[in-house]
Computed example of a mutant assay.
Amino acid sequence: MSVCAVVVAYHPDIAALRKLSDNLHAQGATVIVVDNTPPQSARVPRPALDARWLSQGGNSGIASAHNRGIEAALAAGHAHVLLMDQDSQPAADMLARLLAAEQALLAAGQHVAAVAPVFEEPRQRVSSHFIRLQGWRIRKVHCRHADEHVAADYVISSGCLIRAETLREVGPMEDALFIDYVDIEWGLRALSRGYRSFGVCAARMLHELGEAPAGLPFSRRKRYPVHSPLRHYYHFRNALLLYRRDYVPIAWKFNDGWRLLLKFGFYSLMTPPRLAHFRMMLLGVWHGLRGRAGALRAE
């Protein structure tokens, strides 16, 4: 089963990107790098990697970059696509464990959307969980043992393995979202068409979330990923855009909306520059309510 890894790059750390490419090759994957770095801002020449390099000519967004790589992978006849971020590093056996889990799930009669590893955030040293709507509540589901396959509503894009036939059936990522909620939208769309994503507890990966995490002043243990004000614009706008979709469950909208409200308060009060975060999140809400999509342009 041939696998093509699609790695999205944006101002990449060349040493880390080379390490990732070598890692994926060692696991048997063909590698395509889709570069979102604007040409005029690139400070280093294209690195010598054993990978096909596709330049977007600028920042086209994560969804568009994924779709460019997916299209190239499918055109080359690959049976699977493995989506990867430049700041992820899979364990040496991650791909083999994902493929084995997928085959076991298919043999059990599951309609598999994607399989994905458990990732560890190296700065927080915590393992990820998976998200599943149960009744009227969104639950965080943690792995109980290594052999478990956790049913999820969606999985994060980095590290997720998708069959070519599933991509043809469910469709590509949604370009108009640009960045953020792209993996959530695809997972929920797949779920509405009878496909389920799964977390593979035996598969592992290192993955950084955002910038340095922040926490509440009275709690040193609980930390939250922090992104730029611009990224928070997309986060809030795209959440509102998804709430308009009829294939997104009503209970999911209410639960995610409540969490979004809490995030608005936290990032407005706890993450400098507070006013910039507040303004960009508010603009994202306004544009989401208006149904505005695509890249944010200067007005």
Score class of each variant (00 low, 15 high):
K140I: 00
G58E: 10
S64Q: 13
W258G: 00
L99G: 02
P229D: 12
R274F: 05
A202R: 13
F278I: 00
H149T: 11
V7L: 05
E102A: 01
E169R: 09
Q40M: 09
T166G: 01
W286A: 10
L241W: 04
E71S: 11
L241A: 03
A152L: 10
R46N: 09
L206W: 11
A108M: 03
A26N: 05
A152N: 10
P90A: 04
I14L: 14
P47Y: 12
F278Q: 05
L241D: 02
A65C: 06
R245V: 00
A104L: 07
K222L: 15
R163T: 06
C143E: 05
M281A: 03
M1P: 06
L49D: 09
F198W: 15
R244T: 04
A48G: 08
V118C: 08
L191F: 04
H142Y: 14
L216F: 15
I250Y: 02
V155T: 15
E71T: 13
A107T: 10
L177N: 05
V170R: 02
L296T: 08
Y224L: 15
A29Q: 04
L188R: 08
R237Q: 14
V182A: 07
P213F: 12
L17R: 05
A251V: 01
K263R: 14
Q40K: 13
D13I: 03
A15Y: 06
A75Y: 05
W258Y: 04
A16F: 03
E169W: 00
E299S: 13
Q134R: 09
G257V: 00
R221V: 15
R144P: 01
D85W: 11
Q110C: 04
E102K: 02
H232L: 15
R231H: 14
L17V: 07
L216M: 14
S228D: 14
E169T: 07
F198S: 05
Y234R: 11
V248D: 04
N255Y: 02
A113T: 02
A251I: 00
L99A: 09
Q134H: 07
D93S: 07
W186H: 11
I250L: 03
L83K: 12
I32S: 02
A203M: 07
A104Q: 14
S64M: 07
A212P: 14
G159L: 09
K263Q: 09
A190H: 08
D183N: 03
Y243S: 02
I162S: 07
F218I: 12
M1Q: 11
E148A: 11
V6K: 04
L106S: 01
L106D: 06
R223P: 07
P45C: 10
A63M: 05
R52T: 14
L17K: 06
W186C: 01
F264R: 13
A214L: 11
K222R: 13
W252N: 00
A146K: 08
S88H: 09
R292A: 04
L209G: 01
A202M: 05
Y195A: 01
D256G: 00
G187N: 08
M94Q: 13
A75C: 04
R139N: 03
R244Q: 14
S197I: 06
V44G: 03
P217Y: 12
A164S: 14
